[in-house]
C-alpha cells in the first residue's frame, strides 16, 4: 500500500500543507480533506468544467489533476474569488442577471470566467462563448451567463 505524500502548496493566497494518497485528485483533496466544497464534482472526466480551479492562473479541471501535483503551485478556488470587501464583479453580475438556477455549474463558470477576464479585459461574445465551452450548464441555456460575464467585464473596465 503506497504511503501518503506530503504536499506544500498555496491555496487562495495561503500556504497549505496536506497529506494525500497519490491516487487522490486535487478535487478530492480540496473537497474531502480541506473542506473547500465550493468546487463541485460533475462528470469527473474533464467534460463539464464544474470542478474548474486556477493553477498558476490557468483554469483546469481539478478532477483531472492529482493532489500530489499541487506541490509548489498557486491554486485559486471559488472560495478565493471574492475579496474581503465583497463579491467579485462576476459573482455580483451572476446574481443580477440570474445567471444560475441549480447552481452546481456556477463555481466552475465563475472561476473559468475569472481566468478569461484576468487575461482579456474586453472579450467579444464569441470569445466568451468559446472560452466557456468547457463549462456545461443544463439549466440556463448560457445566454444569461454570457451576459453576466460581459457586464462584469464592462464594470471591471470602469
Amino acid at each position: 500500500m503506497p504511503g501518503k505524500v506530503h504536499v506544500t502548496t498555496t491555496i487562495n493566497g495561503e500556504s497549505v500543507e496536506f497529506l494525500c494518497e497519490p491516487r487522490q485528485t486535487i478535487l478530492e483533496v480540496l473537497r474531502d480533506q480541506l473542506d473547500l466544497t465550493g468546487t463541485k464534482e460533475g462528470c469527473s472526466n474533464g467534460n463539464c468544467g464544474a470542478c474548474s480551479i486556477l493553477v498558476d492562473g490557468n483554469v483546469i479541471d481539478s478532477c483531472l489533476m492529482m493532489g500530489v501535483e499541487a506541490e509548489g503551485q498557486e491554486i485559486t478556488t471559488i472560495e478565493g474569488v471574492a475579496s474581503a470587501d465583497g463579491l467579485h464583479p462576476l459573482q455580483q453580475k451572476f446574481l443580477e442577471h440570474a445567471a444560475l438556477q441549480c447552481g452546481i455549474c456556477t463555481p466552475g463558470f465563475i472561476v473559468a470566467a475569472k481566468a478569461l477576464l484576468d487575461q482579456e479585459s474586453d472579450p467579444s461574445e464569441e470569445r466568451i462563448r468559446l472560452y466557456l465551452a468547457g463549462n456545461l450548464c443544463r439549466c440556463t441555456g448560457y445566454d444569461k451567463i454570457v451576459r453576466a460575464v460581459q457586464d462584469a467585464a464592462s464594470e471591471m473596465a470602469e
Binding site: G46, V55, N58, I60, D61, A112, A133
Partner: peptide, 9 residues
C-alpha cells in the same frame, strides 16, 4: 483540442 481547461493541461 478539448476545452481551455484541457488545453491548459
Amino acid at each position: 483540442i478539448g476545452s481551455i481547461q484541457i488545453q491548459n493541461r
